[in-house]
């Protein structure tokens, strides 16, 4: 097997792997419907709809905790 053939097989394996990951992600999104912190994914649309500087964030990030 020369390098070209090897890279073609490697490429194929990578494709299969990525396809599995992508479908796994689809399965995860539609069965769990919520992310790890319990937010329904659909709530995130509100980030655009309520985007005044004073609006309450969907998931607030407390700045004090950071430093």
């Amino acid at each position: 097997m020369n390098i070209a053939e090897l890279s073609a097989y490697g490429y194929f394996a990578l494709t299969v792997f990525l396809v599995v990951v992508l479908y796994g992600y689809i399965y995860h999104l539609y069965t769990k419907k919520r992310d790890a912190e319990g937010h329904d994914y659909e709530e995130y649309s509100n980030m655009a709809l309520n985007d005044d500087i004073g609006s309450t964030p969907v998931k607030p990030l407390s700045r004090d905790k950071e430093n």
């Binding site: 992508l22 995130y44 649309s45 709809l49």
Partner: peptide, 26 residues
Amino acid sequence: YFLPKESGQAIYSYKLSLLSFWGLMF
């Protein structure tokens, strides 16, 4: 951003937007 914002409608499916993102990147 602009279509939901201007129309006042939430994205039809936020999950689909995430999926399409990774699909496109891939």
